[in-house]
Every structure is written in C-alpha cells, then in structure tokens.
Design a protein around this nucleic acid. Structure first.
Length: 393
DNA sequence: CGGTCCCGCCAGGTC
DNA sequence: GACCTGGCGGGACCG
C-alpha cells in the first residue's frame, strides 16, 4: 500500500492510500459500494498531519454526502479507534494508528470474557478510546435466551453495571446504544478475534451476535448492518471477502492480527474483483449540504459503476489532480498490503513470527507529548509505523 | 431470486 | 422547540 500525499497549490496536502492490488485501501473503495467510496474519501480528507478535529457538517459538505451517512462512517471509525468523539458534531481524528490499540483492546475484552465465564469481572475501567461503553445485549431478547453465549458473555463483562441479578430491563437509550453500528462493529471484530474458524458468513455472524431464535426480520436487519461494517473493514484490510467452500454464500476472513491463539492470519491472494453493485453518491461534486437530503447531482443513481478507474479519475478530478506524476509519496507505507503486493511467503512467515507481541508494542509505546490531541494522534501514528516496520500490520 | 446496500423516516437524545 | 444522532427496514439494484 502506498501513501500518497497530494500537494495542491494553496491547500493543505491530501493523503490517499492506494496500491495495485485490489485489497489495497483505495482500490477496494473504488471498486466497492459507494458507501466505501465515501469512507475512503473521508479518510483521505482527514488523515493529514494538520487535521485535529473533524466536523460532521464539514465532512458532509466536503464529501458531498448527506449528513446521515457521515454518522455511519464516524461510528465505525470510532469503534476501531480511528476517531474519538469530542463533542456534539465534533470528533478528534486519530487515524490508522489508533487501530492496533483498539484491536488490542477488543481482543483483551474478548479474552477476558472467555476466561471469566463464571465470575464476571467488574472492572471495565477505560474503554473510552474504543467506545463509550459496552453494554450487554440481553435486553434485546426477552425471548432470546439462546443469545450468543460468547457475545452476551463478553458484553456482560464490559458492562460494569451488569449484575447477575440485575433487572431484565434497562433504559431505552442503553438499549439503543446496544444496537449501535459502532458496537456491532466491535462485536463483529470480536467474533474474529475469538472464534476458531477461519471465515464466517454474515448470516452466521448475525446469528452469533444476535443469538438463535430471532425473528427473520431481526436477522435481516442485522445482516444489513453487517454488510456496511464488512465493507469498511475490508477497506481497512482487516477482513477480506471470500467464498465459502461448501456453499455459494460469501464469507469474510480476518486479515488483521490478534487471533486468539496465534499471531496472525495470513491473507491469501485475492481471487476476484468485488462487483460494483451500484453507484449511488459517487459524484463527489455534490457539495450541497442540505441536511438529510441530497440534491439532484445524485442523478447517477442506480447506474452501475463501469470500473474503478472511472471512479479513481473522478476522485482525482475532484481533488484537482489528474496526473499521477504530481503525487508525492508520503511518509509511510502500511504493511498490510505490502504483504499482498509481494505475495512473498517468506516475508509473511517472518511477520507471523514476530506478530505475537504486537499488542504489547501498541500498548507500551508511550512517547511524551505536550499537546494532548495532537500527541495522541502522533502516538498512534508512531505505533502504526512501528508495527508496520516490523511487519506486524 | 437471493445477496447487497441505498436511502430517508422518525424516535430518542441534547442543547 | 430546534437540532443532533442514528436505528431501522423498505425496496431498488444486480448477478
């Protein structure tokens, strides 16, 4: 994966991530659903040294998407540590560097959940950098006692107020939060971090997250959300879409680190390009930010995207960059895709060996800074670079 | 026809 | 009461 910094006259440089293989950040996004394009554009817009905070209105305007969609993006990004909510309408940008720590946190939570089956711990001191909190999902189903054991377990641990004899009801707001996209993202990731199987279909994931015995409607809704999440995680190279051996159903394989009993799951070479389902909202020229409504520039609705190249060109045009030679390579080169670019087994084996302590690295890296916001991000980016350099990402 | 996922309604929360 | 958040699911699109 290459990190391109596009410098434009009179404007702060813009960073894009791209590479030749389809699992690279930019290509996946361009080949994937528009939601991913927004996501990619969002990251491209804000993953810069001089960006400290992210305003939702600003993001919606600059990306030309309705505000509602920005909420989805920031919720997912927040859940994997790339953003931290600071105030209403305002987030602090952490960036890719926040991902390792967030994953480590999730893994820790998962493992703690598994290891304390009988005695739910009460310590959930600071999940702040991952999410507001982690509530249990039990309320969800008065009828759903077949609740996913793994999940309810992990969640009960995450919730300090979750006593064994607690009443089976809770505030609506909590109930609502339980179903948030962010929490669902985290729980989806936890599935990968704790399960033994290599891949999982969204149906299966929905079952595990929701528990058996749910109405088909419920399941369907959950799967819808998982599609959104899976697309983003794919964009980040944390998972990849595959085909289940024994069925037509697609499944997702974890590409990130921190599997439960091993260091890393090595990504297999990609098989085929993801189809473009639709091209809603791919026109980034739409900068009219009427709350909740998009204007008529979304007229390409329903038309299939011809190819990623068009989108790429379009994106470049929007950025005022038509010529690749104008690009300047940025400071680092995340290693996720590098593995895939080279397809070098030897390298992968080496990486596998050193992967075990990536969490320690992520959690122990504590440089000294003065500006809390900036420093938090710098710290995260340093961690990212460190892990990348060691081939841990 | 089933897998995807766009889209925006609207309920709940916050200011 | 206005505005912010974001769950939710109908239904369009596509292979």
């Amino acid at each position: 994966m290459f990190c391109w910094t596009i410098s434009k006259r009179d404007e702060a440089p813009l960073t894009l991530y791209a590479s030749r293989n389809r699992y690279s950040f930019l290509e996946v996004d361009l080949a994937g659903p528009p939601w991913c394009v927004w996501f990619a554009s969002f990251v491209a817009l804000y993953d810069r040294e001089d960006v400290e905070s992210v305003g939702l209105d600003d993001a919606a305007r600059r990306l030309g998407v309705e505000r509602r969609r920005i909420y989805d993006i920031v919720n997912v990004l927040e859940s994997i540590g790339m953003l931290v909510r600071r105030a209403k309408n305002r987030y602090t940008w952490i960036g890719f560097g926040g991902v390792p720590a967030a994953l480590a946190k999730l893994k820790e939570m998962s493992l703690r959940a598994v290891s304390s089956v009988a005695s739910p711990s009460l310590d959930e001191t600071s999940a702040a950098n991952v999410s507001d909190d982690e509530d249990d999902d039990k309320l969800d189903d008065a009828e759903g006692d077949a609740e996913s054991e793994k999940l309810s377990l992990s969640q009960s641990i995450d919730n300090p107020s979750d006593k064994p004899d607690a009443p089976p009801c809770k505030l609506r707001s909590e109930h609502r939060k339980e179903k948030s996209l962010g929490l669902l993202t985290q729980n989806f990731v936890k599935l990968f971090l704790t399960m033994e199987i290599e891949t999982i279909s969204l149906d299966e994931a929905a079952k595990r997250l929701l528990g058996e015995g749910h109405a088909a409607n419920n399941m369907r809704t959950k799967v819808r959300r998982l599609y959104d999440i899976a697309n983003v995680l794919s964009s980040l190279n944390l998972i990849e879409k595959t085909q289940q051996a024994d069925s037509r159903k697609p499944a997702f394989r974890w590409l990130g680190q921190a599997k439960r009993n091993e260091g890393v799951t090595v990504a297999l070479p990609p098989t085929k390009t993801l189809p473009n389902k639709r091209a809603f909202g791919t026109d980034l020229t739409n900068i009219d930010n009427k709350r909740g409504k998009l204007d008529s520039t979304m007229e390409n609705r329903g038309k299939p995207t011809q190819d990623g190249g068009n989108l790429f060109n379009n994106l470049q045009r929007q950025l005022g960059q038509e010529n690749r030679s104008d690009f300047v390579y940025g400071p680092f080169h995340p290693a996720v895709a590098r593995k895939q670019e080279h397809g070098n087994r030897t390298v992968q084996e080496k990486e596998r060996k050193s992967i075990q302590d990536w969490e320690n690295l992520a959690s122990s890296f504590r440089p000294q800074y003065q500006n809390p916001v900036l420093h938090k991000r710098q710290e995260a980016n340093e961690t990212w670079k460190l892990l990348s350099a060691r081939g841990l990402l």
